[in-house]
Design a protein around this nucleic acid. Structure first.
Lengths: 184, 184
DNA sequence: CAAGAGAAAGACAGGTCATTCCATTTGGGG
DNA sequence: CCCCAAATGGAATGACCTGTCTTTCTCTTG
């Protein structure tokens, strides 16, 4: 079970895309990094746009999986919420953190159907996760979950520009407050 | 009192940058749109990076001025807060709205000192505005104002990807809730 | 009128971009 | 061992990028 070439390309290209931006990273740069021939790359991904979409899809799966693992660590919804922001804070407290990969991708390729579709699907999945969390806490209305999503997005966007992970802790505080207030 | 050439260039370039993205708009495109010679553009802005920074600075002044006008429309802090999100909702409810210009710019040019500096200054100014609003409401602690900033950022980021202005109304609801809860 | 400044138009340099194609080598399954 | 598909290195494509520079033209001001 060795890593396929696709996975290898995706790993390298993904890291470059996130770190330096999608438009800033050319195909030449990717084939240099992966030590893969150009024709090979184009055999696996028919265009750069496809590669970008695959990168986002990969990222989507990782983030969702990571969130699910967090949910499995503690049973109580409130602790889960707390831990979600805690983990985000850890990630944000790193110089290579640049914010939400999907927001960055849409900023660069907001006219690419492929890119926007994956990005929206990811945001919807995260929203559903917050919705399910609130349901488990016995909250029926959808609004509190939407507030949590907004705070999560706000934390990501704020850190992306300001680079101060403190914003995530502030968001956590507000999220817990919203959670407690929505509790039946 | 005719508009200076700098202003003319800034207006056209700014519209293009926001609509299509900074990297997607080349110098040739700008001089074609403005009907200005390339040398003229470079006389007024020594590099594209300078032009981008000027675009953001211009945008910064407009947004802050627009916010101040909103604050002057109604006297009560709570109504001001409500109106801020109301106006954002109006803007978001338009096909050409692409989210926060500063977040978009940092996504594309996060390595440009000039760009990041202007973007951070803008975010700081908005934060101060929320801080002053809460102070006028008699709230001394800084946290509630930070929560409002996060919700504002979250609304912008969410609309940027999802394109659903409803998110702004949801953010307003949460913001008013936070405001009322922080009230002495 | 003269002179000089600024602007227009566009050629040019030196890269980089994504993408295609080709000739050659490699590696694994029958 | 042989064959074929896949991978390789690299050249070629045509478009676009920022930034410089030259030449011509049109003002304004003395």
């Amino acid at each position: 079970m060795k890593a396929s070439i696709s996975d290898h390309i995706l790993a390298s290209a993904g890291a470059l895309f996130y770190r330096e931006g999608i438009r800033a990273v050319g195909i030449d740069r990717i084939i240099e990094e992966t030590k893969v021939a150009k024709a090979t790359l184009y055999r696996h991904f028919p265009s750069k746009d496809h590669l970008v979409a695959a990168y986002l899809h990969d990222r989507h799966e990782r983030v969702i999986r990571s969130l699910e693992e967090v949910l499995n660590e503690v049973p109580r919804p409130r602790d889960q919420l707390n831990l979600i922001f805690e983990r985000l804070h850890e990630k944000a407290d790193s110089p290579e953190f640049r914010g939400c990969a999907f927001a960055l991708a849409v900023a660069e390729h907001g006219d690419s159907e492929r890119v926007v579709t994956v990005a929206r699907a990811h945001k919807a999945a995260v929203s559903r996760m917050f919705g399910a969390l609130m349901e488990r806490a016995g909250v029926e209305t959808a609004q509190p979950a939407a507030h949590l999503s907004l705070l999560y997005e706000g934390a990501l966007a704020t850190v992306a520009v300001g680079r101060d992970p403190q914003a995530v802790l502030t968001a956590r505080e507000c999220a817990l407050f919203v959670f407690d207030a929505a509790r039946p």
